[in-house]
Amino acid sequence: MLLQQTAIPDNLSYLLLGLAMLALILGGYLVSYFVRLRNIRREAALLEQMQAEAPEAPGVSPASARLT
């Protein structure tokens, strides 16, 4: 009886599930961030290309140069 009361329960699987959810949530957010960054960089590159083909407008600098 005493042993039953003091024994540490085996719930390691829940800890592993928690770690998996941490990886999924944070990892998922990082993937979403990099996908958005890649898409906006592609769009910036396309706009640069369109700018280069069209006559130069004053005061318009390449968009990707501004990511600081």
Binding site: R36, I40, L47, M50, A63, R66
Partner: peptide
């Protein structure tokens, strides 16, 4: 960066 690209898009 997204807003800068959007502004540039409007200009182009």
């Amino acid at each position: 960066f997204t807003r800068q690209v959007q502004a540039l898009k409007m200009q182009v």
